[in-house]
Every structure is written in structure tokens, then in C-alpha cells.
Write a protein that binds this DNA or RNA. Structure first.
Length: 296
DNA sequence: AGGCGTTTCCGCCAAC
DNA sequence: CAGTTGGCGGAAACGC
């Protein structure tokens, strides 16, 4: 897995320590299936085509925006004046600060929920930009592209910033669009839950409240939550709390008890036990090893 | 969507 | 003294 990623990195990205690239495709002829290991953000600037993936094929046209998850093969058929731009990037490799982003519902839809449920939703839940939104996105992409092509001093900094701007803009656009279709509403409901957790992890969170804000029964919320996150709601919250606590242990010298309270644990004893369960060692031990440059 | 038996959570005290 | 671990019981979360 790791080896595949590195080899692919060299093939896809000109600079192996900077995993960001923009590719424009102006194709009148069908492209063959290709695959890779990175996130590919696709923006359809003009024209139309049929998007073919291993999970099915969907008609696409100007204004469509969607994410191809790294290892998925895909291509385009029956292209008609198709103009698309692919933004390939490795989110982890670029070190983007996603904490704030994850507070946006639209981010969860665009990067997690819609790609995951695309098959069931028949691509009807994708982001569709209005004309003026598409123009703004195109402008951001052009600026990003100019930095990557010209490589003026500071271009990495600027390219990262433009990419962040684009991702933030697209995330907001999804949440702003009217959601008349049932599929979109259910995605936004789940995204609302995920973003709520990101914003309120330090407070008391109950499944009852989450279900209420999603307008779902507790059982159906738990079922769809597990489907998209792989874990139960409370498991997810605890994992987030522990992750936030681990960060505070690394980056500050706050007392363990204080960190427990700041991360939503009202009992430092209970925090200690939960921390060990997921991190394999006690909070204090973890901090000590981190300070010594030990294992992550 | 709701019911029900089982598991887990969570806040408390106590002991290192 | 701060932190960790164990035990307990009511509440909730969970999975069928």
C-alpha cells in the first residue's frame, strides 16, 4: 500500500514532496480508463460527456463538480466539446489544515458522503454550480494553475492557499444550493450531524439530539452513520475527542485533567481509560514519548 | 419505525 | 499532588 502510493506519487506529481497538480482535458475523443491513488477533484467547465467508472456511468455537463477517490478507475465517453479540469492532490501530503473545514457541512458531502453513496444515489446528489459560481471556481483554478506552471517564489504557499480557497468555496456552494431532492436532503442531514460533532465535540452529545437535528429516528441515524463513517456515533465522538486531546498533549503543556475537560470528558479517570483504549498508552506516557520524538 | 435484551458509556469512589 | 487503574451502578447506546 505504502509502496504503491510512493511510486504513484513520482508518476503523477512533478515534485515528489508537493502532491498537487492541475490537468486540463480538452477532449473530443473518448479517454481510456485510468487509475491512481490520489484524490481527483473534477470540475466540468463546459460541454458534456458520459463519465464511466467501475461503479457505473453518469452523464455530466458544465457546472458539475465531483470527487474521484484515489484508487478508482474512470474515464469519459461520448464527449461533446468537453472541457474539464482535474485537480489531483494528496490531502494528507499537502498538510492542509482541515480542522476548520470539517465544520462545514458541504465539505463532508463533497469529500466523503457523495463519493461514498454515489452509486445508491445515482449521481443525483453531486454538486452542480450555477453559472456565476462556475465562473468563480474557474477563476480560482486558473490562479492555482498559474502558480504551479510559473513557479514564482512562494508558489507552493500560494498554490496551497488557492486550493484551500477553492475547496472552501465549493463546500459552501453545496450547502447553499437548494436541496429539493430527497437524496440531497439526507446527505445534508448527515453532513449536518458530522459538522455539528466537529463544532461541539467538547460538549455533551447524545444520539437523541443528533437524530433530532437530522430529523431521523435514532435507529436509522445510527445505521446510516455507520455506513458512512464505519463506526457508531458515540464511537466517532470519542475517537475525535481522543484525537483532539492527543494534539493538546503534543502541542501544549496543559495538565492532563485540564485537557480531558477541554475535549469533552467530564471525568479525567474516564478520559485516561478511553485514551489508553485507542492510543495504547496513558496520556502522560503518550506526551512523554512524543516529546522524545518517539512513536506516533 | 419501534421493541427488547445486551453491551457500552460515564461519572463516582477508592487505591495505588 | 497529578495521574492511572479498578470497581460499581444507573443511563444510554447498540444490534437484532
Amino acid at each position: 500500500m505504502r509502496v504503491r502510493l510512493r511510486r504513484s506519487s513520482r508518476q503523477l506529481f512533478p515534485e515528489e514532496d508537493f502532491a498537487l497538480r492541475v490537468m486540463r482535458i480538452r477532449s473530443h475523443s473518448p479517454a481510456s480508463l485510468h487509475e491512481h491513488d490520489f484524490h481527483e477533484l473534477v470540475v466540468v467547465l463546459g460541454g458534456a460527456a458520459r463519465h464511466v467508472t467501475s461503479e457505473g456511468h453518469y452523464p455530466i455537463s458544465a457546472g458539475d463538480v465531483f470527487l474521484i477517490r484515489g484508487d478508482m478507475a474512470h474515464g469519459y465517453e461520448e464527449t461533446n466539446r468537453l472541457m474539464i479540469v482535474n485537480i489531483l492532490f494528496d490531502p494528507a501530503g499537502l498538510g492542509l489544515p482541515t480542522d476548520d473545514l470539517r465544520r462545514l457541512p458541504g465539505y463532508h458531502v463533497l469529500f466523503r458522503l457523495e463519493p461514498l453513496l454515489r452509486r445508491q444515489h445515482g449521481f443525483r446528489s453531486r454538486l452542480r454550480l450555477a453559472t456565476d459560481q462556475l465562473a468563480e471556481a474557474a477563476g480560482l483554478i486558473t490562479r492555482l494553475e498559474n502558480e504551479l506552471v510559473g513557479r514564482p517564489p512562494g508558489y507552493r504557499f500560494m498554490a496551497r492557499a488557492h486550493l484551500m480557497h477553492l475547496i472552501g468555496f465549493l463546500s459552501r456552494s453545496y450547502a447553499d444550493a437548494p436541496a429539493e431532492a430527497a437524496e440531497r436532503r439526507s446527505l445534508l442531514a448527515l453532513a449536518g450531524v458530522l459538522s455539528f460533532i466537529e463544532r461541539h465535540y467538547a460538549e455533551e452529545i447524545t444520539v437523541d439530539r443528533l437524530a433530532g437535528m437530522a430529523a431521523m429516528s435514532e435507529s436509522s441515524l445510527m445505521r446510516s452513520f455507520r455506513k458512512v463513517t464505519g463506526r457508531s456515533p458515540i464511537d466517532y465522538v470519542i475517537a475525535l475527542r481522543v484525537a483532539k486531546a492527543a494534539e493538546l498533549l503534543r502541542r501544549t503543556d496543559l495538565a492532563v485533567t485540564e485537557i480531558a475537560f477541554r475535549c469533552g470528558f467530564n471525568d479525567s479517570n474516564y478520559f485516561s481509560r478511553q485514551f489508553r483504549k485507542t492510543m495504547g498508552r496513558s496520556p502522560r506516557e503518550y506526551r512523554k514519548q512524543q516529546a522524545a520524538g518517539g512513536p506516533a
